[in-house]
Nucleic acid binder design. Sequence first.
DNA 1: TATGAATGAGATTTCATTCAT
DNA 2: CATGAATGAAATCTCATTCAT
Lengths: 223, 223, 223, 223
Amino acid sequence: MGIEERKNREREERHELILRKAKDLILDLGVDALTMQEIAAASELSKATLYLYFRNKDAILTEILEDASSAFTDYAKSRIPEGASGLMALHALWSSYLTLYGESQDVVVLTGIKNYIDPGFPLNMDGGNGKFGAAMGKMMELIADVLRLGMADGSLARVKAPERLAHTVIMIATSIIDTVTRIPRHRRDPHLISIEMRETFEILLRGLAAENADPSLLKLMAQ
Amino acid sequence: MGIEERKNREREERHELILRKAKDLILDLGVDALTMQEIAAASELSKATLYLYFRNKDAILTEILEDASSAFTDYAKSRIPEGASGLMALHALWSSYLTLYGESQDVVVLTGIKNYIDPGFPLNMDGGNGKFGAAMGKMMELIADVLRLGMADGSLARVKAPERLAHTVIMIATSIIDTVTRIPRHRRDPHLISIEMRETFEILLRGLAAENADPSLLKLMAQ
Amino acid sequence: MGIEERKNREREERHELILRKAKDLILDLGVDALTMQEIAAASELSKATLYLYFRNKDAILTEILEDASSAFTDYAKSRIPEGASGLMALHALWSSYLTLYGESQDVVVLTGIKNYIDPGFPLNMDGGNGKFGAAMGKMMELIADVLRLGMADGSLARVKAPERLAHTVIMIATSIIDTVTRIPRHRRDPHLISIEMRETFEILLRGLAAENADPSLLKLMAQ
Amino acid sequence: MGIEERKNREREERHELILRKAKDLILDLGVDALTMQEIAAASELSKATLYLYFRNKDAILTEILEDASSAFTDYAKSRIPEGASGLMALHALWSSYLTLYGESQDVVVLTGIKNYIDPGFPLNMDGGNGKFGAAMGKMMELIADVLRLGMADGSLARVKAPERLAHTVIMIATSIIDTVTRIPRHRRDPHLISIEMRETFEILLRGLAAENADPSLLKLMAQ
DNA sequence: TATGAATGAGATTTCATTCAT
DNA sequence: CATGAATGAAATCTCATTCAT
């Protein structure tokens, strides 16, 4: 069984290698420039081999997206304090996003890819369910939960249909990143991006918060 | 004399025909599926003929974008009341956008195309100048003007760098449309889109308005 | 009849206009870049109109070539002294070519075009007769005459088949120009061209002259 | 191990196949008629496959040119006797060219291609560098060397600037071939071509040789 | 006579994906 | 398991030439 274990481990390692290289390429060159050829070259594998690990190009992208959204969701969850109000939770959410962006730009991958994989998400009538996996769903769920919470405790005003509103929120929150994912690294201005992200999230906070909200929860730290 | 006029008119008609067909195709199938071949077929012209009317594919897209953004800008300007406050102006702006969307979905074309033409806009370090024409610039200018106005009269809180903020605002405002332009018609749900647009704009209004704002200016009519 | 005369004159003028503009374009941009579109634009005529004056693109080029070779032939003939030996005549011939080149680069057009019109000339088995007109023939004839003369008076050694040798001579003499006609003006170095032309002609003179030739007839003036 | 070898060999074979077919097409139809489509058909491969072996069309042409000029240079070098005078070397050079042409028409490919790849060579002001590879340079170098040698030992008269003169010489020497490469095979007369080549080279020899040259070095064998 | 308009035919190149070994 | 090789299907754009008015 030691052999089988090793095989599994190696298989897993290749799998990760491919994903990592693909991510790097996206971050370096932009999604639009990502080709199977490039991924293969970067991984020092043949194109055909890629298909042993992933059904097709989409599967690679989908998994990258899953990883990223999963990482974000987990991180964000861990930073939402026990017993937090909806607004506090939302604040923690955006804070996490900014921090994550500050630490590594991997989150960047998150949504531009989302749009690339399923250009209509989340507006498709079929829900785009076939395309995205669990993690993306969990992320939407988290946001919906936060909105629901805020609706219940009154800290987020005018939230009526949390599930649907979660769509809107996610689209707004990711609008910058959608754009960023298409720019090659050398043409990106990380500082500007950071500022615009923060601005976007503050608009979201103020746009969703109840009137009497604690002002400190409407501002985010510059990274 | 009459003859030349007719020629000009016919030429203009063909020009419009191509643009219209291209728009239809975008609306029907999504920008990603737009090809010169398809435009030619839809226009019942040869591919070569398209090049008599447009320098290249980009020119077609750019003109569609210009038309749409120009239409929006003009319409919005005409609906901003004389002597309006910044917030009132912003309210009128989003109102116009919704109305326009309600009347015809052509505005939809607006931004998905924008992203398609220049995937990094407006975050490019080179400013992406040269790709977009006057109308797109006028639209950004209008938004910046409104923000400046609100900053001056105090109706829009926390606006500090109107030109830059205009970027953020435009990205947020168009995030839905960006998405929509990539969905084929049969998978779009116009009602849902309408709701999400309204929601987005209300978030923007609340997110930018000063604290003591007139509540009626923070809501938008359902179309 | 005054009317008819005027018509004829106007027709002639248009004809010349087109040729002149085409020539200019060739000289400016190189033959390879010559398109009917460009000729039409430069002539301020429509493409279709060009076809009223010339059967096709080839006809334009052929006529330009004819004009140029005719101009050269006439000029050269006028400069061959009465009673000249073959070598003297050949010397006068190349002298004329250089002078002509010095005065205006129009002769340049001469041969590159030749190769462009009929890439195989003068090696085609059908003699390329269908393509070239009288003037080109006259030019070959002139060279053959000179060679014959030199063969008769002994001033040109080893000339045995003047008609055939005329081919070789013309190919050698025009090898530079063939090349030049494909270079746009801004990338041409007229001085270098001039030097290489002279060198080529001196090689031809020495290569064909009898042993005891007057040395002064083996050199050409720098322009 | 044997397997890898075989793969390499097969790859090499395909590579050669494509080159050979392309050469054949050039020889059969003329460079001007050479298209990727035709090469693909002749090789019984798809167009896309061609791009696995060559970066682009130019790369195919360039390699054909390199092969041909390299073959010529090597062959010529091997035929220049130890301790030969400049004139003897030049004689050997042209002899080689003729022999090579007699054996296979590969040399034919040489210059038409050269002119096709870089229409202005060698008269470009930028030197046309980057387009041609090493072999072409070696060929020019060889000629320049021979000229230098003849200048030193006095066997070639009036050679002053060997590098530049090498240009002229190469243009003259290849003028026939330039022409030939553009004629489809069925319209070529190999015998006539052979004669004219010889004539050209003899003119070059006599045109460059010093006065007292050994007459036998001024003549070339008919092939 | 003049022309605006149209086009057929083609050229080069790219990319995700499959398959025999 | 790995891969080299191959390809179908597109996509964008160019140009000489024709024709109805």
